[in-house]
Nucleic acid binder design. Structure first.
Length: 643
RNA sequence: GCUCGCGUAGCUCAGUAGGUAGAGCGCAUCCUUGGUAAGGAUGAGGUCACCGGUUCGAAUCCGGUCGUGAGCUCCA
């Protein structure tokens, strides 16, 4: 008998060969129905996998991320089967689950288009109706090669070679007349897949390598119930409404033009948001002991040789000539900051020295990756470099993490941390230095008690880093804050400080940014708030609407009192009905709409209407000014505006 | 960069048997002075992204360029 230990600590004795499905049925029929797969000591297995040892046992359902992955992986097989029934000559490459749904990369005899997607969807439903079982079979290399050669699936033959070379078992999942090379595990059958939607088709390279031929990637999603699919599709629609590119245009925040692909133009409204973020950022950074500097946009190519950027980052840089010299437009601020540090001798008493800059950088991004404010060629980093002793690293990292938390919480953002370590190739500095740096980051994370994900090999070429990922309204994670340790750059620039004993020592440098870039961060804010920015960030905080032209002067006086109180206020002067003016103000998402009619004008009141909330009744003008000032000063989130 | 789609007034879009362009919103002027999400009239506004080709004639067909959208990392 084997012992299974359940997540709640309970144990159960089972005989060899018992399957997870049998175990589930013994626990409860409803659990057996919900189960999609199981885990044995953390290893994902199918529900009919015979149990051959004692293990920690867990049933996987739709509620688990891995449960969704299994569900979507099996759905990808249904997609492939449907495609093969429609296009028997289509060649299949690879079809994994993703964070939201699944896809299959396919070479069609003739490229298909959007108009073919409904046919695929209909065929998928047809396949699902057959409720076919997914049957696992192990094969050796020769058998598998013969199997897929007979089926003309030449891409699969390459995969078989790769798997065989790794010495792994080759498994095939059969489903009716069709079969796919697949590690699994899978659902027992397709009966649980109740709703599918084929979402899109786009180009994708074979094996994801741009040197290879291009295939077509068909993306789709599936759910155990129609309701969940409907919910998902509704969410997609909502997300589209929040697209910062659309809202940026509608709210006149910024624009893009042919004359500057990837270079945003900030309009007055967007510039206000920017300025408020700058003020917020500056307040906190001054308080945290940072000193602001400014460094040049264009610097000699020799500097970039010295920093290593020429060697490692050249393809993303812009170059120019001045007189007879070669210069480069800065893609990062660090060499400038190193130059400032190196301009004077430093004592250990000055450390940690924190130099900050809202540094505008230019990077040549491939044309195809540009995406609104999220991916641009010119952006402004809220950059800072902390020069300190090796002993100060841990404390300083902890302080940076705390500052990040303070800033993100102001916007109501949740975030996740990732620690990235030394890349396999393309790195500078010795192995010992890298190890020391990675340890310091781990220590700091341990001290703040933060959970983090490890990304081996994902560090920058000059040091390991901690990245912070914000989750946006589309469920996408965006990297914003980053903290990067750098033992190499001070070395390259020969930086030093005088230690207590009078000797010269090398400082350590910490690169860090919190917004990441103002451009991307504002894009995220727009989507996060669906354009309904909190009062402190709103380009126009209040608009005064006279009911008729008879109240124009009274309304103007209200606007002047707001302006005198430091509130960004506008006055509506068009000769329209009040309903029209209200609608216009609501459409512009102005948080405070102040209506002045004859009654209010007489008593020094304004009728307050908050964006999205309707009429809140009349109040004295002074009271409204104070309320607006308080919200702005506190940089209040006004949580209710998130709804 | 690559694949596919798209590019008509400030905005959102109509405009296929190729015959020199339309709507709504916005804007301007006038009328209306109306209490919480669209009052009415008149008018201005476009070298149909750009370059070239086919044609008697191109927004429309063809080629190229530029821009833009989706995708191109996430194990069979």
């Amino acid at each position: 008998m084997f012992t299974l230990t359940f997540p709640d600590g309970a144990v159960r004795q089972v005989s060899p060969g018992t399957t997870p499905l049998e175990v589930a049925k013994e626990i409860s029929p409803s659990l057996a129905k919900a189960a999609l797969a199981a885990e044995l000591n953390g290893e994902l297995v199918s529900l009919v996998h015979p149990i051959q040892a004692s293990a920690a046992f867990r049933l996987i359902t739709w509620q688990d991320e891995v449960g969704k992955a299994v569900f979507w992986h099996s759905s990808a097989h249904v997609l492939a089967q449907a495609v093969k029934e429609l296009w028997p000559d289509a060649l299949l490459d690879d079809g994994p689950p993703t964070e939201a749904g699944f896809y299959y990369d396919i070479k069609f005899p003739q490229p298909i288009g959007e108009e073919d997607l409904p046919r695929i969807e209909v065929k998928m439903r047809e396949v699902l109706k057959r409720k076919e079982r997914l049957v696992r079979r192990e094969m050796d290399g020769g058998e598998a090669t013969a199997f897929f050669t007979a089926r003309g699936e030449r891409f699969k033959l390459d995969l078989i070679q790769v798997i065989a070379a790794r010495g792994e078992a080759i498994t095939v999942y059969e489903q009716g007349a069709w079969a796919d090379l697949c590690r699994g595990p899978h659902l027992l059958d397709t009966a649980k897949i109740k709703a599918v939607k084929v979402l899109s088709v786009a180009g994708a390279y074979l094996r994801g390598d741009e040197k290879n031929e291009q295939l077509q990637r068909v993306r789709a999603i599936s759910f155990p119930t129609q309701e969940e699919l409907d919910q998902y599709l509704f969410m997609i629609e909502e997300a589209k409404k929040r697209d910062h590119r659309k809202l940026g245009k509608e709210l006149e925040l910024f624009s893009f033009h042919d004359v500057g692909p990837g270079f945003p133009f900030w309009h007055p409204n967007g510039a206000v948001i920017w300025d408020e973020l700058v003020r917020f950022w500056r307040d906190l950074h001054r308080a945290a002991g940072y000193q602001e500097i400014r460094t040049p946009m264009i610097l000699s190519e020799s500097l970039w040789h010295q920093s290593g950027h020429w060697e490692h980052y050249r393809e993303n840089m812009y170059f120019t000539r001045i007189d007879d010299g070669d210069f480069a437009v800065k893609p990062m601020n660090c060499p400038g900051h190193l130059t400032v540090y190196g301009a004077q001798p430093h004592s250990y008493k000055e450390l940690p020295l924190k130099l900050a800059e809202m540094g505008q950088v230019h990077r040549h991004e491939k044309s195809g990756v540009l995406h609104g404010l999220f991916r641009v060629r010119m952006f402004t980093q809220d950059d800072a470099h902390i020069f300190c002793t090796p002993q100060q690293i841990e404390d300083e990292i902890v302080k940076v993490i705390q500052l990040v938390d303070r800033i993100y919480s102001t916007f109501g953002f949740s975030y996740e941390m990732e620690l990235s370590t030394r890349p396999e190739e393309k790195y500078i500095g010795s192995l010992e230095i890298w190890e020391q740096a990675e340890d310091a980051l781990k220590q700091a994370l341990g001290r703040v008690g933060a959970a983090f994900k490890l990304n081996p090999g994902d560090g920058a070429f000059y040091g390991p880093k901690i990245d912070f990922h914000i989750k946006d309204s589309l469920g996408r994670r965006w990297q914003c804050a980053t903290v990067q340790l750098d033992f190499s750059m001070p070395e390259r620039f020969g930086l030093d400080y005088t230690a207590e004993d009078g000797t010269r020592k090398r400082p350590v440098m910490i690169h860090r940014a919190i917004f990441g870039s103002f451009e991307r961060f504002i894009g995220i804010l727009i989507e996060h708030f669906a354009g309904n920015l909190p009062t402190w960030l709103s380009p126009v905080q209040a608009i005064v609407l006279p009911i008729t032209e008879g109240q124009m002067e009274a309304a103007r006086a209200v606007q002047e009192r707001l302006l005198a109180g430091g509130i960004r206020a506008q006055l509506e002067t068009r000769s329209e009905k009040i309903g029209y003016k209200i609608r216009a103000a609501e459409t512009r998402k102005i948080p405070w709409i102040l209506v002045v009619g004859a009654r209010e004008a007489e008593q020094g009141l304004v009728a307050v209407r908050r964006h999205g909330k309707g009429d809140l009744g009349a109040k004295p003008v002074d009271e409204v000014v104070k309320e607006l000032q308080a919200l702005s000063m506190a940089r209040s989130l006004e949580a209710e505006t998130l709804a």
